[in-house]
Design a protein around this nucleic acid. Sequence first.
RNA 1: GCGGACGUGGCGGAAUGGUAGACGCAAGGGACUUAAAAUCCCUUGGGAGUAAUCCCGUCUGGGUUCGAGUCCCAGCGUCCGCACCA
Length: 878
Amino acid sequence: MTADSQKNERYNAREAERRWQKAWDERGIYATKNDDPRPKYYVLEMFPYPSGRIHMGHVRNYAMGDVVARFQRAMGKNVLHPMGWDAFGMPAENAAIDRKVHPKTWTYDNIVAMKKQLQSMGLSLDWSREIATCDPAYYKHQQKMFLDFLAAGLVERKQSKVNWDPVDQTVLANEQVIDGRGWRSGAVVDQRTLTQWFFKISDYAEDLLQAIDTLDRWPGKVRLMQKNWIGKSEGLLVRFALDPTTAPNKESELEIFTTRPDTLFGARFMALSPDHPLATAAAAKDPKLAAFIAECKKLGTAQEAIETAEKMGYDTGIKALHPFDADWKLPVYVANFILMDYGTGAIFGCPAHDQRDLDFVNKYGLGNTPVVCPPEVDPNSFIITDVAYDGDGRMINSRFLDGMTIEHAKQDVARRLEKETRGNCPVAQRQVNYRLRDWGISRQRYWGCPIPVIHCDKCGIVPVPQNDLPVVLPDDVTFERPGNPLDHHPTWKNVKCPQCSGAARRETDTMDTFVDSSWYFARFTDPWLTSAPTDREMVDEWLPVDQYIGGVEHAILHLLYSRFFTRAMRKTGHVGMDEPFAGLFTQGMVVHETYRDNAGNWIVPAEVKVEGGEGHRRATLIATGEQVEIGPIEKMSKSKKNTVDPDDLMDSYGADVARWFMLSDSPPDRDVIWSEEGVQGAGRFVQRLWRLIGEIAGVKAPAARPAHFSDAALTVRKTAHRALANVSEDVAKLRFNRCVAQIYEFANALSDALGGIEQAPSPDLAFALREAGDILVRLFYPMMPHLAEECWSALGHQTLVAAEAWPRLEPDLLVEATITLPVQINGKKRADVTVPRDAGKEAIEAAVLALDAVKRALDGKSPKKVIVVPQRIVNVVA
RNA sequence: GCGGACGUGGCGGAAUGGUAGACGCAAGGGACUUAAAAUCCCUUGGGAGUAAUCCCGUCUGGGUUCGAGUCCCAGCGUCCGCACCA
């Protein structure tokens, strides 16, 4: 193809993209070898749930990951960039119920469709490592690890109050309940008591918390969210003696947890959770209390109700004795706001310094005693009425603590009560509490990884022998009845006990799908291995993931589970490190305007035409011309119908345009607003680059590098290398929007340089232009790889850009002989001064003072001060 | 309630304490064209001036500094996370 014929020819993305994808494929250049000697780089995007179609969020996520992968490859790294499918989960079962398709069929059909979509994006993925978590070849290893964890004491079966999703008819972990609703179904969750399998993530609470500080390439926001979720609080466990004449049975004491032992002398009451054993015992003798507790439990089923419920209490008549004064008797209430599963399920109430306690005493007329006095307030006139004081100050009304700081008082109380004993045990001990609960993994669903244990009446819980793994899901299940199809299966659950050979039952619960995604990154390092979940050499070579990219919505769930799971795998010998993800990047969402017709129905953007600009934008229905209301910009969602199908985008503009636009408009960690205009702009730029490269391809350059470069040639070279330096830095830091701006600027400058040439350029300029063209192509290659290949070929190269190294920077070209410094007078820019790069402060000062603008401003006087910041700025203080 | 982030043109957004508004979008004007599309050129924070140039300007009010969008204090607003956690 000649340069002239290219000039008027538009770049045909559809044709070119298919052609280059085929070329990459044929050469297998994205298949990663495990024995490659180059330094490794593992880049991973969160693998998708195979819902059937990719959405714009996927396009953005995978475009970013692909830029990183291609860049690191060009930088000479052995890059691992795999893809797989988070393939178990409820939607497959819902499809089975709604459409009578088997979950397996539905899932694998979706995988085929989505894989095709991802491939059309031109992602540099190693598909030879593809895994699906619903494949027995994958979950076999998960079952093996479950058994290893069980043997290592990391798994527990216990009765517990669980979050029950009435729509999905299954249990949810705390992390999976958002605002009192199931994270997937959106149904209001209620509480049930069931026997469940748990991973003992709370054993690692402290370690998971401490190690957050080592994750220096994670967003601060995610680290903070995890810290808060783990929710460490340090305090004192205190045993209060009970007045035996008031205690219901033989209970002699009540244990409470407090983080404020300093306020013990402000105590006014004790409160028990309605589920507390002492409350239960007391209720046995007091029907009214029993009724109160029943009322609390009714109210307390849904989380929403808890949040709005009024504080209510019931005086049990039991009296607790103050630990520092046996004559001081505190009433013991049952109160609806005390949680059984935090601390001991009981508190002492200090109303003056805790808002909840204050609300409570104000309702029941128990009064309050302030014991911490704010600085610069007279202790004698300090009273609390409606607002509790939780600030700093000195102790008052607290006998031997008076005058101490809060911290000092806490220590003093702890020391005294630790020394005191009752029944050979100290009255108090220091304790650390965490908000983090164990991870309940039992799900009463079919489409998940079977939990490999057998229940035997004689032997109890018996692990499935390793040789019998995997426990494969049966295919012949029905979804006609609500509940767990595995439980309804006629034969599957009936097995012989591996120990006594008697009749036994399989566990019919399956694992939470978050288990599946807690180790897939490790499996990618050797997905072919059949004998074990991981090959230690390979997994220790590749992990941790150097750059993990995904949505911030996984800040707690998936990312915390994976951190725990990696620790558990280490303990059981499957990996050699604690932290799975060294670098984490959380990308923003793709958002779009919403549209509604007169009747208030949501309208999909594809059916809407938007016209006008600057405040007089209006939208109409393409079909009827009916006016449509433009609503707020929101996350693309099916319910608001503000989605754009990536396939449509790629069909009309090509994958490169879709990728470029997704990377261009907003910083990658913020939301990007999808707009047709923005996409068109990206499409125009693709054509512009194509024309520009066509022009450069028409420049005849000498094969050998000229010995000398003219000023014009040098300017072109400097522009190119400046762009190279900037883009390299920005890609490495994942600042894709700045990369895009740099590339625009570079292309603009190159266009200008070409436009200014009237005759055939001199050999040195021609060489510089060709060099700049080569650099430009390789700079936009990670973002628009197909266009880059086409351009690279047009420039006469026989190689693939995908196999090229990143351009080599000539740092000398970044250094200018002279620099132009802004000159400020009293902090305001008034002039420029051009000086040699290495000019000393005195020389710069002299040059500045000689400027007309400076002379005018000084009006003959000498300046008070001249500040010269070399390479930066000069400020004259008049 | 607790914790965190953010606040810059018509819009998305640039700016190691050092020339505010890079780059893109939108808009306006012009060229080419029979016309349209495509493309190219110019203008585009506000104000004054023929112009050189000057004044104002990064949510509001203070402060630190030769110099503040950036740092500190107070307030207003938006977004996010957690939330009877003792």
